[in-house]
Amino acid sequence: MLKIGCHLSCAKGFLAMGKEAVKIGANTFQFFTRNPRGGKAKDLDQQDIAAYLALAEEHGFFPALAHAPYTLNACAAEERIREFARQTMQDDLRRLEYLPGSMYNFHPGSHVKQGPEKGIELIAAQLNELLQPTQSTTVLLETMAGKGSEVGRNFEELRAILDRVELSDKMGVCLDTCHVSDSGYDLVHRLDEVLDTFDQVIGLSRLRAVHLNDSMNPVGSHKDRHQKLGEGTIGLDALRCIINHPSLRSLPFYLETPNDLEGYAREIALMKSLYRDQQNCSE
């Protein structure tokens, strides 16, 4: 079974997101923990969470993926921005314990002229401060496109963060297909080679989720502009190979394409139809 969902708005609560997921044929979904530009999260509604968990069990949902706000920057040059990141992540992880077994994805951040080494040091320090041995949530570093001073522009930078995290069993990686392509990894012609490199540098056991997106820009562009599936430079053939690859096909896939719910429903149906295709993509 293909584990696939999309990004849904949490404004109406978890039960509403669960019902939307069912409506569009998804069996998981991603949501922002709060406004993607930052701010205070909504108060938890215990009844809403309980109703969602019952719905998720009824429909066989796979764990949801929570996404931190884009403004979370654990390696910012300014202390006040790093403190916002610390408080936000701490609050998010506390709240996610009400959704046992969830995953929490965040962009590593931008070092802002401090250099990637300093950025890596600051990110790992925050994770070491906040991760708890008893938490059920797995925290994911997202692969980045490499624009500006982003940390996570290649697999080596993510590995450097992971190497510094003490509770490494609480950590994983989310591979974004648009970001990875834009950062210079050729998913269209060298998918096996890219995954072999990921395995050698990070380890495929660390890969816990995939953001399934096409890209508006060519490989190595460092632009980070998502496109609808099959309408970008990655293309439908490569995306079919990605969801069917032996190293990836059991992972959950989350769409972040520029779509409304109807568009997501079409893409989910399309990916489900392609998931049955077991053709050898390396040929």
Rank of each mutant, 00 (worst) to 15 (best):
S168V: 11
D196V: 06
V194D: 02
D163Q: 15
D169K: 12
L191R: 13
Q200L: 12
V210T: 05
E156Y: 14
I234G: 09
I123S: 01
R225T: 01
L195K: 10
H189M: 11
H226T: 13
A160E: 13
D199Y: 00
L167C: 04
C174N: 13
A160Y: 02
K147N: 07
D214V: 10
C178I: 01
V210Q: 05
H211A: 09
R153F: 09
Q126I: 00
L229H: 07
K223M: 12
L158Y: 04
L236C: 05
R164A: 04
R190M: 06
N128K: 06
V165W: 01
Q135V: 05
P133N: 11
L204I: 08
I161R: 10
R159Q: 15
D214F: 08
Q227D: 12
S221T: 12
L212T: 00
L175A: 07
E156A: 14
E142D: 09
V165R: 01
T138Q: 14
I123C: 00
L212S: 00
D214G: 07
R164V: 05
I123N: 02
R206N: 11
V165T: 01
E129D: 15
D224I: 04
K223F: 00
E150H: 10
Q135I: 02
D196P: 04
L167V: 04
L140F: 07
G152P: 01
G235K: 05
D182K: 10
S168Y: 03
H211R: 13
G235H: 05
T137G: 13
F198R: 03
A125L: 12
E156V: 14
K228F: 01
E157F: 06
L141K: 06
E156T: 13
G146P: 09
L212Y: 00
V194I: 11
M216W: 08
R159I: 03
H226S: 10
G146E: 05
E150A: 14
G184F: 09
V201F: 10
D224A: 03
Q227H: 11
N217H: 15
L130Y: 00
D163N: 13
E156R: 12
H189I: 03
A125Q: 13
R190P: 00
V139I: 01
L131A: 03
R153M: 12
D199S: 00
F198K: 03
D169T: 14
F155N: 00
M144F: 02
D186M: 11
G203M: 09
R208V: 10
R208M: 14
H189N: 15
R206H: 14
L195E: 12
H222W: 04
D182T: 08
N217I: 04
T197L: 15
I123F: 05
A145N: 09
L187F: 02
R206S: 15
L158R: 07
L207E: 02
E142Q: 11
V139R: 03
L207P: 03
R159P: 04
I123V: 15
R164F: 01
T137A: 13
S168F: 03
T137F: 14
D176I: 08
S168E: 10
G152C: 04
V165N: 02
H189Y: 11
Q135K: 06
L236Q: 12
L140Q: 13
L127E: 02
E193M: 07
G184I: 10
Q135A: 11
P218N: 08
K223G: 01
F198Y: 13
V180H: 06
Q126C: 11
C174S: 05
T197A: 15
L207G: 02
Q132I: 04
A145C: 08
L130P: 00
E142H: 07
D176Y: 10
